[in-house]
Design a protein around this nucleic acid. Structure first.
Lengths: 191, 191, 191, 191
DNA sequence: TATGAATGAGGATTCATTCAT
DNA sequence: AATGAATGAATCCTCATTCAT
């Protein structure tokens, strides 16, 4: 069975299994054994490819961030007008896949672990810094210079808030409604 | 040591210890053992007063919600103008104590457990429904009828978003900054 | 509330509760707390009246043995013929109350604890010795001298076997059937 | 230490340890910890091979039943006359190993747990049904048709009764004496 | 490359018991 | 006479991790 070049495939399998496991069984029940079984692999494999469980969780966060990031880049390429750069970022965030229950669950769970897994913080900090920088950059041609920062923060907060709400099992907010609420607010923020 | 009428005191001690423990040691390290030791009590006491750990966590969520709720009620009593009712709700949310690291950490951690502890969901659902109703009620005299709902959702999302951000260890957002961001957005939402 | 002369009543309440608790919740779930709650009393009461849990269990065994013993004595008083003495013993054992599920469950559970609670052994040993002696005495006029011992052992084994069978949750043997099986065998043992 | 194909060996080790532990330390003291230590293994191993403690106990009951069952089958193979089939069953039950203190203790302890571990009941029910069927089959050529059932029940009750008696720490009955009592009774049951 | 056997620490929980009131 | 608050040890179980194969 051992083949060469299995690394990327195996890693991907395990990350997928992690997201699914968190979604379907909950963080507390997402043990290495359960995740690896779900991936059709043995528990030892996690150490093999990710050193330890934290490594797998960090890789999962990276994958989620990367997915969003790629989405943004793809849309940026099509941007013609300055405002299109902002829409690229926003549309990417409201892509159904990022509001999909499994994605949101995993993301939320990883957020909850940050305090206890510093590497998770580091990854997130880097990612958020870049995102925020993109956001400010996109806003610069659209709002007054002294409002760029505060509008960026507002947008950021709203996205997180809507995400957090949609991640809660008690929520009544759908992805579509989230988008509507957001657009309504954005209109007013940009004048 | 055994005395009568210790129930309220002991419960309070344990809830305090839970919040502190989550804040200082992290959710994952907040075992019944550690929480009770922090309260200066034995592990068995949790079962005595709360049936089990989930019971303690639910009681903690109720306490946090109650704290916010009381704050709102207190401020509502002083409201003279319609707009004061809205401020009562908002000011309560931005009270330093609700942005204090220990409070926010505990709140966030409890949110993260809702998927796995249904009773937590139930409590939160009831609380949020009431809060949202209050918010809509306060907004009615201030915005057009057809915008009440969406503005309420926006406010709600922003508060949660700013809270979530301030709970993240990677955050650069302070309570004060959160308030500033929020007020700036609110101004525009209310016209 | 404290009254004088409550001792016998309280003890009786607790013994009843013990039997019921073992029957309805199982030995493993028959804790001092559960037993005392079932008796409508506090957990501390057990220490008060029985020193500790073992004391309560020993008292329960004594009560069960005493019940059977009384039954035998009562019937013995009516015995006119030699053979009536044997029937007194046997009829007492097959009294519906001694095949009642709660009684049998408790008895069986107490048997299972004997190895770990020596006092239970002592009580049982004394009781069985007396019973066996009664049995031999009753058999003496009925069978050959050299068969008294072995018939006594056989009767004893059959009673225990039928009891044990009826105590098993898998059993299909009813009290009535047990009696029929026993009588059929006895007929042949006595010639 | 990790090797492949250890499953059967480990399982066997743990079942042996369970029987020994119940015998030497008592059911109440037969914790997973103590059993596994006695087997020279770690506590986690029980979950690894048997899912949980109940699984180990069920496996232990199966092993005990299987031992008796094998003994019967072995003797059946040598049966030449109809009556030999009956002796095969009876001799198997009175094999010294089945009256050995450790075996009897474990058996008795498992019986006592049936009320609380349904799977134990299921296993026992299946086993007893087959045994009883064998017994009736063996008796058919030996007693009148209308007595097959009652004699089977009597034999069954006597075996259980003698077993139960020999399992009691208060007992004075040895395996040899048990056999003598049984044979004496059987002689009369078969005419 | 991948397995799965094995570990042992740590989790929540249950319990008999003690004791001030 | 009776309570019920409080304890802390012991229970079962889950888990991340290690490692021979």
């Amino acid at each position: 069975m051992p083949k060469v070049g299995m690394a990327p495939l195996r890693k991907s399998q395990l990350i997928d299994a992690t997201i699914q496991c968190i979604h379907e069984e909950g963080v507390a029940r997402s043990s290495v054994q359960r995740i690896s079984k779900r991936a059709g692999l043995s528990p030892g494999i996690v150490a093999h490819y990710f050193e330890d469980k934290d490594g797998l969780l960090v890789a999962t966060l990276k994958r989620l961030n990367k997915g969003l990031s790629n989405e943004i880049v793809r849309r940026m390429a099509d941007a013609e007008q300055p405002v299109d750069r902002l829409w690229a970022i926003l549309d990417a965030h409201f892509e159904p896949v990022h509001f999909a229950p499994d994605t949101v669950d995993a993301w939320f769970a990883l957020w909850g672990m940050m305090r206890e897994i510093p590497e998770l913080q580091r990854v997130q900090r880097v990612y958020e810094a870049r995102l925020h920088s993109n956001l400010r950059h996109a806003l610069r041609p659209l709002v007054a210079a002294d409002r760029v920062e505060i509008v960026a923060d507002t947008i950021s907060a709203m996205i997180d808030g809507l995400w957090a709400k949609s991640a809660q099992p008690t929520t009544l907010i759908t992805a579509k409604r989230a988008r509507a609420v957001f657009d309504d607010a954005l209109l007013r923020l940009l004048d």
